[in-house]
């Protein structure tokens, strides 16, 4: 997937959760990503964040950090 498409998709998810009440948006984005994104898509996200995260919404970056911390691969 092109980085632009991946960034677009991740930001779309962030855009939705940003509008939701509560202070746990990053965690909810992280949960959505781990629930629906296949590992190689998450890998692409991690790689993109590691490379500076160009174009990604701040909340996606926060969510990515959350995923790295909490998502243990089976």
């Amino acid at each position: 997937m092109s980085p632009e498409k991946m960034v677009h998709m991740a930001n779309q998810i962030a855009t939705f959760f940003k509008t939701q009440p509560g202070g746990d948006q990053a965690a909810r984005i992280a949960a959505h990503l781990t629930d629906y994104w296949e590992p190689r898509m998450l890998d692409q996200l991690h790689a993109h964040v590691d490379a500076g995260g160009k174009g990604l919404d701040d909340l996606v970056i926060a969510a990515e950090t959350e995923i790295v911390k909490t998502h243990i691969r089976a």
Binding site: W37, E38, R40, M41, A74
Partner: peptide, 11 residues
């Protein structure tokens, strides 16, 4: 069974 979600059609 794999515990990670798989690819959707566009993916």
């Amino acid at each position: 069974i794999d515990a990670e979600p798989g690819l959707r059609i566009p993916n």
